[in-house]
Design a protein around this nucleic acid. Structure first.
Lengths: 212, 212
DNA sequence: CATACTTTTGGAAGTGACTCTCATTTCATA
DNA sequence: TATGAAATGAGAGTCACTTCCAAAAGTATG
């Protein structure tokens, strides 16, 4: 190997990026289902078989963007003196500032597709499940409880539940375009509610705390 | 029409049931992906085209069982003096006793498939989203708040989040067979935690109020 | 019972995602 | 430059799913 990163690696990275870019463009222009893998491959100037070597399924072109990994990493970096929910909020904040303009646009586009295309949206459930697992792990570490403790799992489930609320198109008249900033704001507000407001709400007492 | 329910209707119902039964049997015997629609149709003695007239996709053979509708109905029947979470627990309890042995077996089987087959599991996300919507509606009615109130949505998201926790195979070493009774018990415990325990838990772990 | 009308069905042909295999090309190393 | 390893393209094949049309079965009339 003469160079730190061989020609092969660079070429592969370029092909991968090219496939994703052309795919997203075509999805935007013609819609997801109307776009065939053949078209994507042709646009990226590779054969259809090569497409499937880079992405196991057509859906993965959208899902495999390892951008949320950064949030999880930031998550782990938070001091253990912080409460879990505070740590999550901090991690989200850190990740946001680390994203470039291009990153943001990619997130925006893929999230929009996740919201609108049933096949893509469906795949999101495993990501949610993974998130529950990660958050449970972190919470267990901080609280000294076991990972499979019901309280720990309940906590993690609740957090991911509110994540679903802000990212999925749950309300029919939900034609508004997805706004990353808005939904992250909502997520943080909802977390605050979970932390302090929920018990009050459940007691049917007026919760004045909905805008922290 | 000589009879209350024509021969046509009865025949259709029988075909539908037959298709589902043979499908579930074949899935159990050979696995989901190994079973083709052609095989299912052949076993039920209809043509493949007829299969797709009864079920839009192969997945729907499992998903379209309207058994959870009963929980939602029981939900609505609970007095409004009851807290939402208490109402949910009561509804679940009511639905359980209304299920026949055959119902239970069907639920057991379909849930097992939902847990283990990625394609089926994926489709569950829309059911979860629908549940969030329903629960939010009920909570809104009881609390006098609007349905799109963030607190209402957070609450609903948290409830569905714990639902996910008890139904999805979130922990890798999760090879144990699904037990309906166990997971319903866990669900009710988790709801109790949400109602009373969560703030305590959070307080245990150095809950520092950070600013968003 | 025979007739005309409607619904349901089977069959055939086609599309597109995805798999497998194998020969060929392209890059890396000695 | 020769040799091995990895990446690619092409072709054939499977399967879910769609569309269309003609035949069959059920239903309502005379």
């Amino acid at each position: 190997m003469t160079e730190l990163q061989g020609l092969r690696e660079r070429k592969k990275a370029r092909t991968r990026a090219s496939l994703r870019e052309h795919a997203l463009r075509l999805f935007r222009e013609q819609g997801y289902t109307a776009t065939t893998v053949e078209q994507i491959a042709a646009a990226a100037e590779v054969s259809p078989s090569t497409f499937f070597r880079y992405f196991p399924t057509k859906e993965d072109v959208i899902l495999q963007d390892d951008l949320d990994v950064r949030i999880m990493e930031a998550f782990d970096r938070q001091p253990t003196t912080m409460s879990v929910i505070a740590a999550i909020r901090a991690a989200v904040g850190e990740a946001i500032v680390s994203y470039t303009e291009a990153d943001m646009e990619l997130i925006q586009q893929t999230t929009e597709l996740t919201r609108t295309v049933p096949e893509i949206r469906a795949r999101a459930i495993d990501e949610f499940a993974r998130s529950i697992h990660s958050i449970a792990g972190l919470f267990a570490k901080r609280s000294g409880r076991k990972e499979d403790d019901l309280a720990v799992r309940t906590m993690a489930g609740a957090v991911v539940g509110v994540m679903m609320v802000v990212t999925l198109p749950i309300w029919e008249n939900d034609t508004t375009d997805f706004s990353l900033v808005d939904s992250l704001g909502q997520f943080r507000e909802a977390l605050a509610l979970l932390e302090t407001g929920l018990p009050l709400l459940l007691d049917q007492v007026n919760c004045v705390n909905d805008t922290p």
